[in-house]
Write a protein that binds this DNA or RNA. Sequence first.
DNA 1: TATGAATGAGAGTTCATTCAT
DNA 2: GATGAATGAACTCTCATTCAT
Lengths: 221, 221, 221, 221
Amino acid sequence: MTALGANDIVEAQVENPELIDRRRGQIVAAAIKLFGARGYYTVTIKDIAREAGISPGLIYQYFKNKEDVLLLVLLERLDRYWRDVQAAADKEKRPVRRLFAAYAAYCGVVDANKEATILAYRSFRSLDADRRKHVLKRERDIHNLMAGYVEACRAAGLLREVDIDLVCAQLASMAHAWALQSWRFDQSTDLKAYVSQSFDLLAGGFLTGAGKRKAAKLNPE
Amino acid sequence: MTALGANDIVEAQVENPELIDRRRGQIVAAAIKLFGARGYYTVTIKDIAREAGISPGLIYQYFKNKEDVLLLVLLERLDRYWRDVQAAADKEKRPVRRLFAAYAAYCGVVDANKEATILAYRSFRSLDADRRKHVLKRERDIHNLMAGYVEACRAAGLLREVDIDLVCAQLASMAHAWALQSWRFDQSTDLKAYVSQSFDLLAGGFLTGAGKRKAAKLNPE
Amino acid sequence: MTALGANDIVEAQVENPELIDRRRGQIVAAAIKLFGARGYYTVTIKDIAREAGISPGLIYQYFKNKEDVLLLVLLERLDRYWRDVQAAADKEKRPVRRLFAAYAAYCGVVDANKEATILAYRSFRSLDADRRKHVLKRERDIHNLMAGYVEACRAAGLLREVDIDLVCAQLASMAHAWALQSWRFDQSTDLKAYVSQSFDLLAGGFLTGAGKRKAAKLNPE
Amino acid sequence: MTALGANDIVEAQVENPELIDRRRGQIVAAAIKLFGARGYYTVTIKDIAREAGISPGLIYQYFKNKEDVLLLVLLERLDRYWRDVQAAADKEKRPVRRLFAAYAAYCGVVDANKEATILAYRSFRSLDADRRKHVLKRERDIHNLMAGYVEACRAAGLLREVDIDLVCAQLASMAHAWALQSWRFDQSTDLKAYVSQSFDLLAGGFLTGAGKRKAAKLNPE
DNA sequence: TATGAATGAGAGTTCATTCAT
DNA sequence: GATGAATGAACTCTCATTCAT
């Protein structure tokens, strides 16, 4: 189930689950668009309602308050990340290729949702402790997903003796950097070049010689 | 001159430059504390005034509006980063050691100002276009500072053929990750371990064999 | 349509036109009372809300800002003047009688709205250029209405060769004087006496001998 | 003595009478300029201080508060009116000529102080009851001055049987109309034409046949 | 279920006035 | 006598939330 129908996390006044899914979909889509462009605090409930084509009052039938809208927005994004990354990784069998595919997918989804990625950094701390936990839970899911791919490289003897969490932090940071620190990069750099260059750099640090040779084959330049 | 007396960027109604420095120091210190803990939007001018031990009206003698307070808060942090990093780097002559010293100092100042680092990510986009430029200018100064240290490694033949901007992005991202993604790391990891491990990982990616041997000597474990 | 529903001049957040009319009626009535007594600047939005029996926020559903409230207050008064004057004039056919009826009605509406008349003088300049234009437009409508009645006297050969705009200025000034310069008049003077005396004086200046004889019949003292 | 040194009306913290006169002169001149242009409420004490070239605090050495500044501004204007009108009237001996000279001078001083004239209408009601009395006292002085000139016409048998206060109200209203209702007049009308035309109209109402013949000689067109 | 008018607490900001220097 | 930094009450306006329809 997607984050939207998550009645255990976010309560609704409405019973019909399909309606909940549909309305929350509308509202979250509108909110992602607006929060992404202008941030959480400068967007009003009225703005979201107008963008979603419904009345302000209706939002409170599907969300307890504004913060809950933000929560689902953030969870929804993380769900999408998780699905995209896994789907891409599943297409590859060999460990280094799989890790690369996962990283490339991660960068790809960041690129396709730049605003949402930035929003996550901006607005995570606008949530209260309880809601943060839910978001962190999903962050950790993604972390674990990636950690599995790294671990597989180790099992194949292709990984130097390094801390896997640290490697995951690096991979995620660099994927995020594409959205968050774009000012550092030459404007002419495109996503594809960024992915291969940054992976080369990162992999150079954590793969063994054998691993690097496999990685090298990914970019036949 | 520090960012506080920056009359060309932020205007004051008061003439006396020493007073401006002192009062802005008070106000920015209070604002860093509160913004850091609760974010820009949930902190009120009255909160800042109370924390600084002055009246709300007085803030407007030294700042045109709330956004200008945020601007100086962000600039002040970047100034501090720049100074700390440079001071640490200056103590080392050899390129790899110098780069390491710079990175370690960067991580150190992030650690000492975790809240402020997070704030930068959260609140940069709350600034209007003009104010963002000022912040980006200082970000770039730090970027260039680091790029210089990386470049020196290349001049000494210790750098693989890699994009320097990308390397800088990695270094900065990992330093920031210490504050922003601490949930990824084993709670027992301390700053010192983090610095050496992450540098080892990064340097493994961008240094030549000779460079790595020099880097290895930095952590005589 | 009265000035209150004037959606083209003052924008409302609320759609329902009847509601707009009703709420604006409430708000403008309260504002006239308070502005009239204490002037524009010393009356607060909260005062108006309290007087109107609504919440402060609601005023901003029907007016963009405080200045717009003042605008409708001033327009509303001018509308009332126009309607009262025309209604009274329509009851008389012969030119001098009609002009007198119009003047008497003008004085009457000034008397019934002394505070509002004074307010117009006080507060017109508190409006910005755009809003002033709207008020002047209605002032001119009244001017033209009166000018028509004076012109009819001329057509009937009862008017000396005088500037009609000047005559209108005199008529209006004297009507306003009843509210604005009441300190000049013996406290025992009542409205009726004021109207006949001042009209006698004014008409003596602009009517021909024949016209004055007709005017004389109006006051059979 | 002019209104400025009026220690019995407005209190000063400073003893030296010359200084009081000089400083109040500075302050009132600045205030007239600013109040005239922008009205009482939108001008701040700081604005006045800046315009007068002194510090805000100093104003409170010469005035108890902002309202007292307004009081002296209004009194000062009335003093000037009184002096100018009397000076002009004194140059003529014959009653109708004298009255005309007084009226022309009145219009002249209105023309030279349009903003201040408008200010009087706007801001008189911003004063409290006590201060209003002082202003009304001087208004009455001018009224009486004019009434004397009208009375002289009656003594010479040149006045119809009319109420003198009403005549004074007319004369004052028309003089003020030059500033307050300029929108009614053809833009090409100049002051001189206005004075002669309006006096012709007014005098036509209150003078006898003999009086009118004398008045006619004033405008040898 | 859906609407949107209504509420009212609280935000940023201004400014008359005071007072230490 | 003169300065101008400092105060804090009070302003206009916004907006999350509620509730009658």
